[in-house]
């Protein structure tokens, strides 16, 4: 029973922190654009409003897809150690996380393709190619860390970096961190790699047909994805902190970097994005791998 309660607690905690980050992110982007941004709790208001609206569904597949995408991401979140304790302890959860992360986006893709809007179909094909793009460098970086720590369990990797800041993986493997940072930017669909939610070209891609509650669900999925991805990076490179506050603080630093990059860069075309992802971060990750192996 306690177990289930912990799972729910983690779920709500992830959504709360994710929305909180989104609100602050919009405020920072606004300040970069020399304007007063929305209040920091704006994301909560948006989600609240969206859930109060009537929504239009096309068919059953769309409902299933949306719920599946949120469930996929929350499932990924369960395996990520947050400040020392994880919801479900397994020995090699890094591999499970890598697999489960794809579920979230597949769910979204299925829901949106069912909506039949050509813009959405293009958006979905872009999202999946983008996924192809960022997973290759990200997994090479992970491979490197697994080899060096001899284990694929995130907790052990995180604990191996305890102690002073000097033995954080970020300091020991700076190249790996840069490659992971670029891949993170693409994973979250932030600006240089947000060809799938490109409002100027395909009218906000997959989210074209989502209204009311579905858009609310998409918002939550995005919030949880922010939380999960930053949590993975914190555990891998910045040594998962012992108590919650330092953990959230570190997550916020990572999110800050992505928001800053988002505010000042336009987006790549989809083939340019994948070409960029497979050349720049990939070569850094391979270099890192070579350094680790020898």
């Amino acid at each position: 029973m306690i177990e289930i309660l912990r799972v729910f607690l983690f779920g709500f905690f992830a959504i709360f922190i994710g929305l909180f980050f989104m609100g602050i992110g919009r405020k920072i982007i606004a300040r970069i654009q020399l304007r007063l941004g929305p209040p920091f709790y704006q994301a909560f208001l948006d989600v609240g409003k969206l859930f109060s609206r009537k929504s239009i569904t096309h068919n059953f597949v769309m409902d299933l897809g949306m719920v599946m995408s949120l469930a996929g991401l929350v499932a990924t979140m369960l395996f990520v150690p947050i400040a020392g304790h994880t919801a479900i302890k397994t020995s090699s959860n890094l591999i499970v996380i890598m697999y489960l992360m794809a579920i979230g986006y597949l769910g979204m893709a299925m829901a949106v393709a069912a909506s039949g809007n050509p813009n959405a179909t293009i958006g979905v094909s872009r999202a999946l190619t983008m996924m192809l793009g960022y997973e290759v460098p990200f997994f090479t970086v992970m491979l490197g860390l697994i080899i060096i720590n001899g284990t694929s369990s995130l907790e052990l990797i995180a604990n191996s970096q305890a102690g002073s800041i000097l033995n954080w993986n970020m300091i020991k493997f700076p190249l790996g961190f840069i490659a992971a940072e670029i891949a993170l930017q693409a994973m979250m669909g932030e600006k240089p790699f947000d060809a799938m939610i490109a409002p100027a070209e395909i009218a906000s891609g997959p989210m074209v047909e989502l209204s009311g509650k579905y858009l609310g669900l998409a918002f939550l999925t995005h919030a949880v994805s922010i939380f999960v991805e930053t949590a993975i990076i914190v555990n891998l490179f910045m040594g998962g902190a012992s108590n919650i506050f330092t953990f959230v603080l570190k997550q916020f630093e990572i999110y800050l970097i992505t928001v800053i990059i988002e505010a000042v860069f336009p987006r790549f075309k989809i083939e340019q994005a994948v070409k960029f992802l497979w050349t720049v971060p990939m070569s850094i990750a391979l270099l890192q791998l070579v350094l680790i192996v020898f």
Binding site: Q33, R35, K191, A200, P266
Partner: peptide, 16 residues
């Protein structure tokens, strides 16, 4: 032009 590429910052500052 900036907004068409996805870069909203110059659009906001220039219109101001």
């Amino acid at each position: 032009l900036g907004a068409a590429l996805g870069l909203y910052t110059p659009m906001y500052i220039m219109t101001a």
